[in-house]
Structures are given as structure tokens and as C-alpha cells.
Design a protein around this nucleic acid. Sequence first.
RNA 1: GUGGGUGUAGCUCAGCUGGUAGAGCUCCGGAUUGUGGUUCCGGCUGUCGCGGGUUCGAGCCCCGUCACUCACCCCA
Length: 436
Amino acid sequence: MAPPSPLVKAVKGMNDILPAEIGRWHAIEGAFHRTMQRLGYREIRTPYVEHTPLFVRTIGETTDVVEKEMYSFVHHGDPLTLRPEGTAGAVRAYVEHSVHHHEPVTRWYYLGPMFRAERPQRGRYRQFYQVGAECLGDPGPGCDAEMIDALVGFLREIGIESPDVFINSIGGPETRTRYKEALVAALTPMKDKLSPDSQRRLATNPLRILDSKHPADAEAIASAPTILDFLGDDDRAHWDELRRHLDALGTPYTVDTKLVRGLDYYTRTLFEIKGAYDKLGAGSTLLGGGRYDRMVKDLGGPDVPGIGFAAGLERLLIASNLEVSQSVVDVFVAPIGEGTKSPALVLGRDVRAAGLRCEVDTRGASLKAMLRRANALGARVCLILGDRELDEGVVELKDLAGHVQEKVARADVVARTAAVVASPPPEPPRGSEAGQ
RNA sequence: GUGGGUGUAGCUCAGCUGGUAGAGCUCCGGAUUGUGGUUCCGGCUGUCGCGGGUUCGAGCCCCGUCACUCACCCCA
């Protein structure tokens, strides 16, 4: 291997997605577009860079994301940050454009890169891609149930066998305050036994202790009070109705009273979907979301509730077993001889005008090399154009899957090529292995 | 940020109790002056991650460092 040169080395945690893999990305992104559009969501694209205080305010000052994972910098005196998640920017846009004046309910989805300076791991990168959506203006819980149900359908559609839904409610601010007090009261006596992280969180962010996987915390977590017991009447009614809707939709779920999130803006409904444990290892959370009824108002907007979710595309890619075609072109044009290059270019353009994908080889390579490349590109048809064919006004049309070749008049070539490309490939010759 | 594992050709990897590098795949060419995918033959690519140490001699042992990776933390 060449000596490592910083010039040709991607930044840690940021990687290239090469054309060989892009087909799978397109497949999942396409399924996501379709899923969300069927639900009446429209795509929004917000900047990758926002003012730092937007994230500090919405995500929370004491969260790990804000404390140590943001790519922040000062540009001409402005504190700016590469977005670590999508909700803050979407809500900022909602408020900035006074969208609530135009419509009572707003359904937006997005997809794109996010940035967090974490230690890279399987399905976890510093520049990573999320798909997500926000529904603003509907307090739920019908909206919540519909979103969860649709996401289960989406995951199944991209080949994730049995997604597991986990839900919880952390109520509103009053519920949370009362619960926090009770939790701190319950855990303080056993503070010495807690992990160092959890001891610190007892003061800063006690809810997060519930999420700890540290063995030292297991006992404390098991004995901790359950937030569902602290829900106020309204929160309780919201929670019960969510469960009724999910039952009506036939969406299986598990109540997980220990489910909390690392972002501070959530209220009431929280959900998480896991799956493909064998492929993802520790990071088997495919998707997470929840309600954030106070964020719009906190940012100076109207008192409008919201709910949203985000999923990591890299993880969906790992979890999904979608197979996609590796074919790059349908047709390959192979000119033989200098004088055939121009006619080959014209032929290629004519073929493309019929809607076919086509590469013209003007390297001047041998016919053998060109056919090899046609094969490697997954072309169905190779159009061979030499001086002989040019003189006769014909093209040799080779069906690479059928292993047959025919001489076709130049005027008929495009139509004939389209017909061959559209025809099913013949059965493999007997004696060859049955394909899987 | 913490802990473990791994760094040998473009890719996947072998390399014995230390004796100055190999296979398969890919790619290129030939067998077929103009016919792929199969077959046969041939060929290209390496500061063995980097730096230092031990040794007559290090891909192999020791130290450091960097990168990758897995787990923790956290999150999608």
C-alpha cells in the first residue's frame, strides 16, 4: 500500500459511497419517498449549517450530542454548526416561514447528511445519512399511531423482516418534573453503586440513567419508579388512545418504560424501532422518534405541537436484504476502426433517444476488450459497427444473454434493439448450475 | 473519550520454532488479422501501516505511533 498521504485520505468517519453501492441507496431512498408521499408528506431541504444556538436550545445543553459531538465553528463571528439532526432545522424553517398561517397541519419529510463527531462504528459514521419526517399541527395521538404503523410498513418494504416497535410516554413538562424528583429520590440512596456516568447524570439528566447499559446500573434501573405511573390525566388519556389506535391498526408493539431519548425536546410519545440484530450488533436501533409539543413555541413560533422521527440510512442499508440490479447500461456500441467512431456516436444517441441506457466505446480497443466491457457493464445488447457493416448499411446486433447475433439494417436497429432489451433473457443452457 | 482485536498486491487472505514475499479474484494481453461471459497461456501492481529497538539477519519478537475495526459511552 502506498504510504498514507493526507491528500488522498478521507476524513475519519466520513466515507465515499461508490457507484457499486449506490443502487441500494437509491432503492431505499426511493421506497422512503414513496412511503412518505403516500402519507401526504412533502420533501423539505434545509441547510446543512445552522446557527449553533438553534441546536443548543432545542437538543439541550447537557445532552451528549451538544456537549461533545457537534461540528461547531465560528465564521466571521457567527457561531455555526453542521447539523447533527434534522428536526431543529425543519422546525426553524416552519417558524421562519410562518407555515402555520398557510395550513393547519404540515407534513414534511427530508433526507440528507448529518454530522456528529463520534467514534465511528458499524452503521455509525461522523457524516451519516438520515431519512426523517415531521408532522406539525396535529397533537395526536392518531398522527403518532399512523406514523409508527407506516414506518413498520416501510421497513418491511425494504426487506427488514420483523421490525420491533417500542413505545413509551414521558408526558409533558409537569409529569417530567414530578417524575424526575421521584427518580432522583429513589436513586440517591444507592448513588455509590451507580456507574460514574450515571452518578453525574443524577444531577444533570436523571432520565438518561434509565437508558444505561452499564451492569452497575442494572439493579437501580430495575428498582426505579415507572414514568407511566406519573402521567397526568391528559398525558394518560393521550397514551391510552395511542395504544388503542395501534391495536386497531394491528401494529404489534412493546411498552418499554425505560425508553428515553438523548435529545431534550421530546414530550409524551416516544418510539423506537429495532431489528436485524444479527447484522447490526449493538447498534440495532433502526429508527427513533417522538413528540415535541413545545419546540415550535420555544423557538418563538406559535403553540403548535409536533412529532417526528429519524432513521439512519447506513443502518437501514445493513439491515435490509434488498437485491438490486448491477446492470449499468442496456446497450453497448462497439465501433471497429477509426472511421466508424462518428457513426457509432450517432447510433448511441439514437439508442438513448429510445430511452435505453447506452455506452459508446470510442477508446479504439479491440473487439474482444469491448465485448468484455459490454459484459461487465451488464449490457443486454452489443451493437457492433465496423467498416464492413458501414458499407452495407447494417449493424451487427449481438444479444449477449441469448448468445445470438443478427445483421440488422441501420434504419431498423433502434427498434430491434429495444425489442431485444425488453425481451426476457433466455433460459441458461442446460448443464450450467441452477442459479440461486 | 475508555477498552479489546487487526494492519502483507486494487480486493480477500496465506506466510512454519525469526533466514530480505506468495495464492485466489480483479485488471491487461494472447490462443481467435472483427466476437463477451466458460477454458488454456502469459503479464502488471508491494517502502509487509509508519518510526524506533533487539538480532549476523525482522512480515514474524519488543516499544511507540497512526489507521481500521468491534464493544462501551451515546445515538439513527
